[in-house]
């Protein structure tokens, strides 16, 4: 049972790390701000989500797992807001002559 949980952790955290790598590549290589934002939020949301999911079986207690999920939720909220703010600034700059 423990080895199964460990394998799950390895796979999920590995996938999360891979997503972060892909997101960083996108951030560096994509041509315009909106697609860079897209790459960044994918890495933030899904990558961190997978890492948290992978760490859940390793949590010592139920409260510990809940804290991990809360970290993901809070990061979600702040990342979504930051993306919206950056995109909003971009939109206003474009619509202004």
């Amino acid at each position: 049972m423990t080895s199964l949980a460990n394998a799950f952790t390895l796979v999920a955290v590995g996938c999360g790390a891979l997503l972060f790598l892909a997101g960083t590549l996108g951030l560096l290589r994509f041509p315009d701000t909106l697609s860079r934002l897209h790459a960044l939020s994918k890495a933030d949301n899904l990558g961190l989500g997978l890492i948290v999911l992978g760490l859940l079986p390793q949590a010592e207690s139920f409260a510990g797992g809940l804290k991990l999920v809360c970290v993901w939720l809070l990061a979600q909220i702040s990342a979504a807001t930051a993306s919206q703010l950056i995109a909003g600034v971009l939109y206003r700059r474009k619509s202004r002559p």
Binding site: C70, L74, I77, S78, A80, T81, Q84, L85, G88
Partner: peptide, 15 residues
């Protein structure tokens, strides 16, 4: 204040 920011200002402080 952009609406997403106001939303954040409403939901984050309790946490």
């Amino acid at each position: 204040a952009p609406p997403p920011f106001v939303y954040l200002g409403r939901i984050l402080p309790p946490f």
